[in-house]
Amino acid sequence: MKNRAKFLAYPYLVWMAIFIVIPLFLVLFYSLTKGNIHDPSSLSFSLESYARVFEVNYLKVIWKSFKLAFISTLFCFVLGYPVALIISTVKAKYKSILLMFFLVPIWMNFLLRTYAWMSILSPNGFINRLLSFLGLPTLSIMPGQTAVVLGMIYNFLPFMVLPIYTVLSKIDRSVIEAAMDLGANKIRTFFNVIFPLTVPGIISGITMVFMPAVSTFVISRLLGGNKELLIGNLIEQQFTVQRDWHFGSALSIILMIMILISMAVMSKFESDNDNGGAPTW
């Protein structure tokens, strides 16, 4: 029985090898070499690409990517948590309708959604036409960081709401009643029981928002114009425009390492929270 189950995993293992492990090694290989990729004999070991990553203008791009992803994640959390809380507390029949509101945009094509934001935010887009119609001064947020952050929040908010909502809806009502029974009013019950119990959901929400936000290139290109290059755009350009696969690979590896470090910090944070120690009163 056990062996047969193992056997069933082989196709997936083969898939993983072909489409995940091998490409990963290729990326690593290119990042550590220089020369013409079409002429294997010209390739030689080199850390040149990594050295270039640490040039100031590239560091600036990396810094900006992390900053915008961080701001977007923060906003997604601040906006998303209350939404998840509300959805989890409304009556069952409204619950599915509210959830639909949040899920329907995900079913729509990602590019389409971002183009929609373009037409809302662009200099003569919906918002500005409304403002000038009302005789108010127009805004110029697109192209710019604000537009990029708005686009990220809009696109990734559901990925914050869903995991938090899932954890919230799994909390046993009697646990909340137990807190109230022991003297906690609604506010204390929230901060001392509900919030700590949703930490795993928050962590996966943050992960699911931060990772795509830090590596996006579509949102930054469409809403940021050419002004707001992010690390995603930089990597994309190396493979499409610059044809410098070595530098592109090095950037990818650095991005991956930084994401891994962020996640490690997050899960450390989670296990600290989980040690059963005294709550913050």
Partner: peptide
């Protein structure tokens, strides 16, 4: 409200706080 009553409850399925020791 429950939190103002001098009454405590042992719930049927314990309802312990799993995030605390």
């Amino acid at each position: 409200p429950p939190y103002k009553r001098n009454i405590n409850t042992v719930f049927q399925r314990y309802a312990l706080f799993t995030h605390l020791n």
